[in-house]
């Protein structure tokens, strides 16, 4: 589904990603861990098409298409969803209106008619339940005045509504209380299918207790320096990143 080869990206002339290789197949869950500033959010931003970053080398293929040639909105329409580490507020635009616009834009791209109002409402209800989102939040302006945890939950709610092919969750667990973590992770698991894939960026093993990864990658200084089974996350939790640094001779 996703194939990243030798990806180099920089911002303001500073190279952040220094040769990333990553293969994600349909049905898989990949976890990316790594110290602060190692480039995890940068990688997700580059995948989503944030224009501030310049891709200087390498390739990204997504479902057979050259992702780097697509605009951010077309990437979203092709099925890439990014749950933001810091979700953005849009005052005066209701969550519902925002999602309706997004959903119908994606449908239009696929040559589908706008969704019927009653189908949309039914879907809204169903997905709200899935992540146990307070009904009031759905009608409020996008993320405006939401608590940190509510924002994160809202990201997963949006993901559920838009039903992406590849979801990238950038530290969705941070800011969630213990119950919320379980609920949100449960939602992600229910949305999992053999046709979609998930990249989970996190600092903590506890999220991976709920969303069990097929592969864990360690991103360090702009490169994936180690990949392994889910046990790798446990090892990291126990030993910190120092042993990796030693291993890679940094």
């Amino acid at each position: 589904m996703l194939s990243i080869k030798n990806l180099h990206a920089s911002i303001g002339g500073k190279e952040i990603l220094k040769g990333i290789y990553l293969e994600v197949k349909a049905g898989e869950v990949h976890a990316i861990m790594g110290p602060n500033g190692s480039g995890k959010s940068t990688l997700s931003a580059v995948l989503a098409g944030r224009e501030d970053y310049e891709v200087t080398e390498g390739s990204i293929t997504f479902n057979g298409k050259n992702l780097l040639e697509l605009s951010p909105e077309d990437r979203a329409r092709e099925g890439i969803f990014l749950a933001f580490q810091y979700p953005i507020e849009i005052p005066g635009v209701s969550n519902v209106n925002f999602l309706k616009t997004a959903l119908n834009e994606i449908r239009a791209y696929k040559g589908l008619e706008p969704m019927e109002a009653k189908d949309f409402l039914a879907r809204l209800k169903e997905k709200q339940k899935l992540v146990e989102l307070d009904g009031k939040l759905a009608n409020r302006s996008v993320n405006e005045g939401f608590s940190g945890g509510e924002k994160k939950r809202n990201e997963i709610f949006q993901m559920a509504m838009l039903d992406p092919c590849l979801a990238i969750l950038d530290e969705t667990d941070s800011g969630l209380d213990i119950d919320a973590l379980r609920i949100v992770a449960g939602g992600v698991n229910k949305l999992k299918s053999k046709d979609n894939a998930t990249i989970v960026i996190t600092h903590y093993q506890r999220l991976l207790d709920y969303i069990v990864p097929d592969v864990v990658h360690v991103l360090f200084n702009g490169k994936i320096v180690k990949s392994g089974p889910k046990e790798l996350a446990l090892e990291l939790e126990e030993k910190g990143y120092d042993f990796i640094k030693e291993e890679v001779g940094a």
Partner: peptide, 17 residues
């Protein structure tokens, strides 16, 4: 960018905001 990441193009996003 947030709007675009949800599939909404620039023009529509500005309109929405």
């Amino acid at each position: 960018f947030y709007c675009k990441q949800r599939g909404i193009d620039n023009e529509k996003a500005i309109g929405l905001i």
